[in-house]
Amino acid sequence: MATTDRQARTLALAHALSAAERGLAVIPLSRTKLPALRSPHRDDPDAPLCHGECGRFGHGVYDASTDPARIRELFAAAPWATGYGIACGLPPHHLIGVDLDTKSGTDSSAALRELALRHLFTIPPTVVVLTPSGGRHLWLTGPADTAVPNSAGRLAPGIDIRGAGGYLVGPGSRTAHGVYTTAPGTGHLTPAPCPPSLLRLLLPPPRAEHPARPSATAHGQGLVQFVLGVHEGQRNTRLFWAACRAYENGIGPALLAPLIDAAVDTGLTEREARATIASAARLTQGF
């Protein structure tokens, strides 16, 4: 067992150094996928907010580096590390991770395809990392002047986004559930630019200081009819789109019950409908 752990540590460092050569800043991870080094301020509740200014290790993605000497120091300080994390949002790639989860009970790949059809974008050939649970991480790059926030299920159920301040588990990492691997035919690729239409979906919408509140009657009824006119395979997508429009126009709370009723009529469960509408609310209200 000790030999296996030692081999995992050695491989993790080797993969991390290889990623750094490609301009990807890395940190060591434990088998739990969490940063291997704990905060040096964990026992001081009154410590000021520190992003590594203290000079010590243990600040998560703020420790991330592309410098081989520093990476070796990080791994030497965490000899139990069996994986590595790749910090998102940093130059030169400004990485954005699209995490297609399989644990939510939804088909996240289908949800992404539906979003692509609705918003007229395609995912270009890019690096794809396969997770031990059967999920996929798509690597994309963003503009240098745009910070994409982290989110969970905000784009669509089962789709999480790793942006500024977040990290992706790097291929070659060994976790408690297995090893992360690069999908065949994608390891040699450079992360592709995020399609503009998708990028707009990932960013919080601008919030008006005094938004107009239109009547919920005519516009709201149109959104309900839009949900009811669903075709097979589009129920969640239509409901999500309609709920986004409702919250953007200030009638989300008033339209909650009618949208749920319409979604149930199309075959969704009430629980699924509420989860989709909640995702739309989070997206449009920026939380």
Score class of each variant (00 low, 15 high):
1 M>H: 12
1 M>Y: 04
2 A>G: 11
3 T>I: 15
3 T>V: 15
12 A>N: 08
16 A>N: 03
23 G>K: 05
31 R>A: 14
33 K>A: 06
34 L>H: 02
34 L>F: 04
38 R>Q: 11
38 R>W: 02
40 P>H: 02
41 H>G: 01
44 D>K: 09
45 P>R: 00
45 P>W: 00
45 P>C: 08
46 D>P: 01
51 H>S: 10
53 E>I: 04
57 F>K: 10
57 F>D: 12
60 G>S: 13
61 V>L: 00
66 T>K: 14
67 D>C: 14
67 D>Y: 11
70 R>G: 07
81 A>Y: 01
83 G>V: 13
85 G>V: 05
89 G>T: 10
93 H>P: 07
95 L>P: 08
99 D>E: 11
99 D>Y: 14
106 T>F: 13
110 A>H: 09
110 A>S: 11
111 A>D: 11
112 L>Y: 00
115 L>E: 12
120 L>M: 09
121 F>D: 14
124 P>R: 07
125 P>N: 11
127 V>K: 10
136 R>L: 09
138 L>Y: 11
140 L>F: 01
142 G>P: 07
143 P>D: 07
144 A>N: 02
144 A>D: 14
146 T>D: 04
153 G>D: 15
159 I>K: 07
160 D>R: 04
161 I>T: 14
161 I>E: 08
165 G>N: 10
166 G>E: 09
172 G>C: 03
173 S>W: 00
174 R>G: 03
174 R>M: 12
187 G>C: 04
188 H>A: 14
198 L>V: 09
206 P>K: 05
207 R>P: 03
210 H>M: 06
211 P>S: 02
213 R>Q: 10
216 A>F: 02
218 A>I: 13
220 G>N: 04
225 Q>G: 12
226 F>A: 12
234 Q>V: 12
235 R>Q: 15
238 R>W: 13
238 R>I: 03
238 R>S: 06
246 A>S: 14
246 A>G: 02
247 Y>T: 13
252 G>L: 06
259 L>M: 11
260 I>M: 04
261 D>W: 01
263 A>E: 14
263 A>Q: 10
266 T>I: 14
267 G>S: 08
271 R>H: 12
282 R>H: 10
283 L>E: 02
